[in-house]
Design a protein around this nucleic acid. Sequence first.
DNA 1: AACTAAGCGAGACGGTACGTCCGGTCTTTCC
DNA 2: GGAAAGACCGGACGTACCGTCTCGCTTAGTT
Lengths: 222, 222, 222, 222
Amino acid sequence: MAPTTRQPAEHPDPPAAVPPPPARGKGRPRSAAADLAILDATREALAELGWGGLTMGDVAQRAGVAKTTLYRRWPSKSELVVDAIASLFDQLECADHGSLQADIEAVVARFAELLSLPETQAALLALFAEGTRDLHLRRRIRERIVQPQKVLVQLGLANAQARGEMDPELDPAGAEEEIDIIFDTIAGTVEHRLLVSGEPVTPDWVRRFATLLLNPFPGLLH
Amino acid sequence: MAPTTRQPAEHPDPPAAVPPPPARGKGRPRSAAADLAILDATREALAELGWGGLTMGDVAQRAGVAKTTLYRRWPSKSELVVDAIASLFDQLECADHGSLQADIEAVVARFAELLSLPETQAALLALFAEGTRDLHLRRRIRERIVQPQKVLVQLGLANAQARGEMDPELDPAGAEEEIDIIFDTIAGTVEHRLLVSGEPVTPDWVRRFATLLLNPFPGLLH
Amino acid sequence: MAPTTRQPAEHPDPPAAVPPPPARGKGRPRSAAADLAILDATREALAELGWGGLTMGDVAQRAGVAKTTLYRRWPSKSELVVDAIASLFDQLECADHGSLQADIEAVVARFAELLSLPETQAALLALFAEGTRDLHLRRRIRERIVQPQKVLVQLGLANAQARGEMDPELDPAGAEEEIDIIFDTIAGTVEHRLLVSGEPVTPDWVRRFATLLLNPFPGLLH
Amino acid sequence: MAPTTRQPAEHPDPPAAVPPPPARGKGRPRSAAADLAILDATREALAELGWGGLTMGDVAQRAGVAKTTLYRRWPSKSELVVDAIASLFDQLECADHGSLQADIEAVVARFAELLSLPETQAALLALFAEGTRDLHLRRRIRERIVQPQKVLVQLGLANAQARGEMDPELDPAGAEEEIDIIFDTIAGTVEHRLLVSGEPVTPDWVRRFATLLLNPFPGLLH
DNA sequence: AACTAAGCGAGACGGTACGTCCGGTCTTTCC
DNA sequence: GGAAAGACCGGACGTACCGTCTCGCTTAGTT
């Protein structure tokens, strides 16, 4: 999904269930090609120059587009980058690997893979940082980037239940909070490992981490 | 601790145990008061304006100092902010609360408390983001901010061993990796909870999180 | 006279006496009302915002017309303004007031009156300035604005001859040059007085000026 | 006189009799060389590109100066150009050529010469046009460009009186108004001839024009 | 007491990106 | 095929910070 027909001061219209009428505008319609070119250019520039080095003017130039066109669609660098990065997270999926451990390992590995792309690496923390001040941005980040990851965790747990690995009565009660805590743990840990500690996420590390989550603390007596 | 006698193109002098000789310079010595004023001004500006809004010129003005003075001590905004934030992390300590669970809860709570300060909130992720591109900065962040937290985890585990809660033979072998993984988990999770998900860290959440770490996955059969 | 049936890249068709055949085109004919609305809007905008503040988009909006329509008729802002201002100069006329002095005073007063309109005031010098660089524009200015004034001078002199105030043999020889010099003097002086010096043109001043032209220098002995 | 030490929001300090103390500023003093380079660059750009084509950025580049530096000294294109052009008018002088006719011819010729410079040609009318809307600008134009010319006329008339060509009693009474009218006539006529009619100012034309001023209307009977 | 060397406040400097605004062109749909 | 709407490209605008520089002054230790 990409923002093909955004309006100037549009609010992100959360569910946007029905694209009302397709907004049969009167004038010349916005170029869909431009949107793609801009998002591509943004990712390219991010990978090359990083968040700090990324310039609206530069993105416009790479996309072969006037700066005006860019600002007509995205009100700021942050919002543009959210969309550019978000598209990378759209492809997340959760196959059933037969056990909760395997599923978690798969999710962690996939997430680490995404975070290893130079464009993500450059942008993610910067976006989160911006988001601490800008509520609107934070909402967009959550919708477009965080939520897609979270559903993976939810799916994984549901699969585990279906396989009989987990207590089937868990859901209704505290599940919401439990899922949140697990999700924050998985996402936060991988991010911290890769982006703060700067250590690689190897298959071995993934295994250890998943084990830590599912089993008692290693070395703990009783 | 504050950088009271740094020289212009100084390397960060890792342990800096002894300010070698105090560099008995010939000219007028640097004003120690200025350093404090600048760091205070930096924290104040961070809390007020956030990372993006913070300006070297503004900090200088708040500190009643010329921009030159500022640049004579810190080579860039990022380095300045590292030092300003780092001083907040110097006060971390780890008392023995009688059990590993209690100790972890204390560490998590303390860390969450620090991350709830407006100046930390505004700066931490931004610093991490900058650090992904700037190796020198990343090193400084690790020394001044990350490491002080990590020793807490190490200390906590040592205490647990001393109390007999843990297998005393654990250390030498894979402990290093194990500590890393635990540390990334604790730090990353709290950061993600507070700064990305934007949810508060309540005592209840702390208890749940510590429990998740120390025990098998909740609801997991077998 | 207004440009009721101009084509996009049309040359200015100097006399345009007869709109040749009405150019029986195939599609929808151009709206004559639009021309008037545009010119009115232009004058209004000029009076309000001045030359520098006048925008094609703004004019279009005031006229309730699309920018396209505007550009279909006039190739540029300058040309549009020439026509808008020119229509004000169409109404110039020269009655016979009985003496050359009286005729000159009438012409000067009428010209000063035109130059006191806010729209003229805002546009005239700006047009002249543009004209110094754009030959095509200069030609149009001359045709539409300067020439109509000049014929008044010619007419005045002809009347004077008819009344016997002037040597009837003057014409054929150096008259052309003489008329030019007189015209530049009258037009230039009034413009300078009003638009550069910024002083008003009072009846008294008009009388003094006409006297200066027709008589020897005041105070000159011999 | 050139603006070597102007302050940011400085008013033109009309007589500026005493440069109070030389304004012993505290910081780094403004570069005097920059002023000259900028004014030179402005004249060069004017001659090359005309008023409309002149760009602050371009001037800065030609002068080898940052745009900021330019705006620190002049608040707008117009003010900058006034100063750039004004310096050309500083060199005006009025020698005594022995007769009023000769003096007038000299003044007219000199003025025409100035108006024939490409930079003046491009800028003068545009400045006047801007001046019709901007009172502050108009004042500056008058001080720096118009006034220097006017004193020439005053000087010429004084010389004529000294030579006995004119009624020595003329001055005190209506002289002020008489000088204004003569000045507007000379300046306005030359400007109109050169910049609006676009005809050259030849020695022959100068002679005819001076004659028109000093003698009765040519061809007029009685 | 004079000299020297550095720190210091102030503010100008060359750069670079910003986000906005217009001029003029184009592409759509409706009439 | 004219007209309204509005997206589009290009380019200048004036502002804001950056990090460096150049001043004149202050504050030490060294002679």
